[in-house]
């Protein structure tokens, strides 16, 4: 932030906003040990309890005081059970999906924040799946509270959770087509009519990056 200057043009230099909203993918990259604070303990405990650690965990990212473990979807249930039983992460704060269309092959991410009441710790699990095969094993048997969260992530992003007891739409009407919070789904607003002119909806206005 300090190198670049807060304001000013980036990329093509077009500040008029007529180019529309342009999105870029988030940064990827792993963090080096030592991670700092309790993250090293968590990583060590997990490695000890789960010998296949390096196969299952693709990446460990420590950013802004938070630990994110990128897990492969095949090993997700095993890792979650170990985290819940051995490392005492009793509560899962839900699932949220993120759609990175620019990141081909890993477009849909599901993020699980975990909380340990016994040790007063927080970490995050992240699973990436491609658009063409957006299946993730369901964690309802590990943490029952994920039931509705997985339904919501399915409803909003189209990620299908295998093994979910009843994966249906929860927020949109039952016969809705499409998954609204994906980046390729338009916001769906209508132009606002005034006397003699209209204002376009927020997704079609001039927008800065």
């Amino acid at each position: 932030m300090t190198d670049q200057g807060m304001f000013g043009a980036r990329g093509t230099g077009d500040t008029s906003g007529y180019g529309g909203l342009v999105r870029s993918a988030a940064s990827t990259g792993s963090s080096e040990r030592p991670y700092g604070s309790y993250f090293d303990e968590v990583a060590d405990d997990l490695e000890r309890a789960y010998p296949l650690f390096s196969e299952a965990i693709e990446r460990v990212v420590v950013d802004r005081g938070e630990l994110t473990l990128h897990v492969k979807r095949e090993k997700l249930v095993e890792v979650s059970m170990i985290l819940r039983d051995t490392l005492k992460f009793e509560m899962c704060m839900g699932v949220s999906g993120v759609h990175y269309p620019a990141d081909s092959g890993r477009e849909l991410h599901a993020v699980y924040p975990l909380l340990s009441i016994t040790n007063n710790r927080r970490i995050r699990l992240e699973v990436s799946v491609p658009d063409s095969d957006s299946h993730i094993p369901s964690l309802v048997e590990v943490w029952a509270g994920n039931n509705w969260h997985e339904r919501e992530t399915f409803d909003m992003f189209g990620i299908i959770f295998d093994g979910h007891p009843g994966l249906t739409r929860i927020l949109m009407p039952d016969d809705w087509q499409g998954h609204p919070q994906r980046k390729d789904y338009s916001l769906g607003g209508i132009p606002v009519e005034y006397k003699g002119a209209t204002t376009p909806p927020p997704s079609e206005r001039r927008s800065y990056k």
Binding site: S24, A26, S96, G97, V98, W148, H149, Q181
Partner: peptide, 22 residues
């Protein structure tokens, strides 16, 4: 989630009522 821009890339709220209603 931010991508470096002036608009949020993704904003999700973990609402207590959503879990509690289950």
């Amino acid at each position: 989630v931010s991508d470096g821009g002036t608009r949020p890339y993704r904003m999700h709220f973990r609402e207590p009522s959503f879990n509690n209603l289950q």
